[in-house]
Computed example of a mutant assay.
Amino acid sequence: MFKKKQKLIKLARKLVTSSDPKSIVSEQFRTVRANIKFAMKDKQLCTLLFTSASIGEGKSTVAANIAITFAQEGKKVLLVDADLRKPTMHYTFKTLISPGLTNLLMSQWHIDDVVTESGTKGLDLVTCGPIPSNPAELLGSTSMDVFIEAMKVRYELVIFDAPPVLSVADAQILSDKCDATILVISSGTTEKGNAVKAKEALQAAKAHLIGTVLNNFKLEKGHYSYQYYGEDM
């Protein structure tokens, strides 16, 4: 569980851990990395999912930066854009959306055809691919199970960026397949009731929810930050 609060400046999809690794913000992401490892110290962490209660809450930015910090630590990491409805990782890493995950799941492409380099040593990327008409079915498919197991052999950590919990069932479906889940919510935007509903939905899906990220929290001096809490906050 995340027992300690850490503050991070709002990033708007910026890969600060890559562009400015010595910054205070990057150091805070490394602290979050340490807390994730601490939360999973008694269990093996091979797959980690990031989701949110609603859209626009920063889950993709957090997922990308955390993936980079694990790679900077020396781990072999794969970041997967599993938001098959509104993918963003191809924008974040300035690459093509296709070929990607849906090519692999629908057309039986080879894994090597959809995995690309991220620009950060140790971190590979799988973008969304062509947006499908049946995202939930693809994420819950046997092909997805095969993909996850194959990636766990190739990588020390696989991180998934999933759609918001309250919008569609995708995150619930995928969270059940992952070792740990982190929920991202936005201060001043997400209603408390929706945050609770998102947490309950993940728990109903048997997700191992290890922490919550509260971002867009306005400090007295006008800065914005991320704050990290344990599930039992």
Rank of each mutant, 00 (worst) to 15 (best):
M1T: 12
F2T: 01
K3H: 09
K3Y: 09
K5Q: 06
Q6F: 14
I9Y: 00
R13L: 14
R13K: 12
D20K: 13
D20N: 12
P21K: 06
V25D: 14
V25G: 08
V25W: 04
R30W: 00
T31H: 03
I36L: 06
I36F: 00
F38K: 10
D42S: 01
D42T: 13
C46W: 15
T47N: 03
F50Q: 04
T51F: 13
I55S: 15
I55N: 10
G56P: 11
G56V: 08
E57Q: 02
T69G: 02
G74P: 03
G74A: 01
K76S: 07
V77L: 12
D81H: 00
A82E: 05
D83G: 08
L84D: 08
R85Q: 02
R85G: 10
K86V: 03
P87L: 05
M89K: 01
T92E: 06
F93H: 09
T95H: 10
L96H: 11
L96C: 04
N103I: 03
N103L: 08
L105T: 06
S107C: 12
S107E: 15
Q108P: 01
D112W: 15
D112K: 14
D113F: 11
V114Y: 01
T116S: 15
T116Q: 11
E117M: 08
G119V: 13
G119Y: 15
K121L: 09
K121H: 12
L123M: 09
L123A: 00
L125F: 11
T127E: 04
P132K: 11
N134M: 08
P135C: 09
A136L: 06
E137F: 10
E137N: 04
L139C: 00
T142H: 15
V146G: 02
F147Q: 08
I148M: 14
E149L: 07
A150E: 11
M151Y: 09
M151L: 12
K152D: 04
V158K: 05
D161V: 11
D161N: 12
P164W: 00
L166G: 05
S167P: 01
A169I: 08
A169L: 06
A171F: 11
I173N: 01
L174E: 00
C178H: 02
D179S: 05
D179K: 02
A180W: 05
T181F: 06
L183C: 02
I185C: 13
S186K: 13
K192T: 10
K192R: 04
G193Y: 02
A195T: 13
A195R: 09
K197H: 11
K197Y: 12
A198W: 01
A201I: 10
A204I: 14
A204H: 10
A207C: 10
A207I: 15
I210C: 11
V213Y: 07
L214F: 06
N215K: 06
L219K: 12
L219A: 14
G222K: 11
H223W: 10
S225M: 07
S225W: 02
